[in-house]
Simulated assay, not measured.
Amino acid sequence: MVAHPSIVVSHVSKRFLKRNTHSFKEAFVGWIRGKKVRADRFSALEDLSFQVGQGEAVAVMGLNGSGKSTTLKLISGVLEPDDGNVYTRGRVAGLIEVGAGFHPELSGRENVYLNAAILGMSKDEIDSRFDEIVEFSEIGEFIDQEVKHYSSGMFMRLAFSVAIHVELDILLVDEVLSVGDAPFRAKCAARIKELSAEGVTMLVVSHSTSMVKEMCERGIVLKKGTKIFDGPIDEAVEVLGV
C-alpha cells in the first residue's frame, strides 16, 4: 500500500470490440440480409491494480499491445474502465498523443492559450508564463505560424512545454518524448526530475529503456493486459527483456 497515493488503479479491466467486417459496405449488406455482424471482444486490460504515491516517477512498460497507452488513457479520463475503478488526486495533465488538443488552423500562440486554458490556467496565469513556455519549446520564430505546418517534433515541444508550466499534480507522458533531438529530450528528462522533486507525480510510457531508467525509480511491466512485475526500474527493464 502506497502512503498518500496520487493514482489508484483498482481491479481495472478494459475491453474493446474487434469487428470482423472489413468495411461499412459489408456491414450494411450484412444488415440488409439480416446477418449479424460478428464482433470479438478484445481484452486490453484485465484486473489491473497498482498505486502511485505523490512525487513518484513510474514507468509503465511492455511490448506493443500490452495495454500501456490504454492504462494512461484510463487514468487521464479519456477512457472509462469496464470493471474496477481509477482514482486520481489533483490536477492531471496528459501528453498522450503528439499534438492532441491542438487546433490545426490556429497559430502556436493561440494554441498555447487554448491548451493552457483546457488544463485549468487563467488568462493572467498564461500571460505571466507565456514567454517561459515559448522559450522552453525552442520554437519562438514559429509561434505565430499555424500549427498545421508544424512537424511532429514542434508539436511535441510546444505541447510538453505547456503541460509542464501548468500548476499540476500528475503528469502522464506517452511516448511523445521520443520525438525530437537528443538535447531537447535531455532537457525534458531534467525538467521531469525537477517536477518530481517538487512533488508532481509522473507516469511515463516509453520504449526507450535508457530514458525511463534516467527518469523513473520504479517500473510496472504489462504483458497482454496484465501486470507481471512492479518494482525497481532496473529489475523492470530486465523483466521486459529488451
Rank of each mutant, 00 (worst) to 15 (best):
P5R: 05
I7Y: 03
V8K: 14
V9K: 02
S10R: 14
R15H: 11
K18F: 10
T21G: 11
I32V: 15
A44P: 00
L45R: 07
E46V: 08
G53D: 07
Q54W: 01
G55K: 08
V58T: 05
A59V: 06
V60K: 03
V60Y: 06
M61E: 08
G65S: 08
S66C: 06
G67D: 10
G67Q: 12
K68M: 05
S69I: 09
T70N: 10
V78W: 01
L79C: 12
D83W: 01
G90K: 04
R91P: 00
A93M: 07
I96A: 12
E97F: 02
V98R: 06
A100D: 05
G101T: 08
L106H: 12
G108Y: 00
E110R: 12
E110V: 04
E110A: 05
N111E: 07
V112T: 13
M121D: 00
E125S: 01
E125V: 00
S128N: 03
E132L: 13
V134H: 00
F136Q: 05
Q145A: 15
K148N: 08
Y150D: 09
S152G: 14
F155E: 01
R157I: 13
F160P: 07
A163P: 02
L171P: 04
L172Q: 06
D174E: 11
D181H: 05
F184R: 08
R185K: 15
K187E: 06
A189H: 08
A190M: 01
A190G: 11
A190P: 04
A190W: 00
I192V: 13
L195Y: 04
L195W: 03
E198D: 15
T201N: 01
M202P: 05
V205M: 02
V205Y: 00
R218Q: 14
R218C: 13
I220Y: 07
L222C: 01
K224N: 15
I228Q: 03
D234M: 07
E238T: 12
V239P: 12
V242M: 06
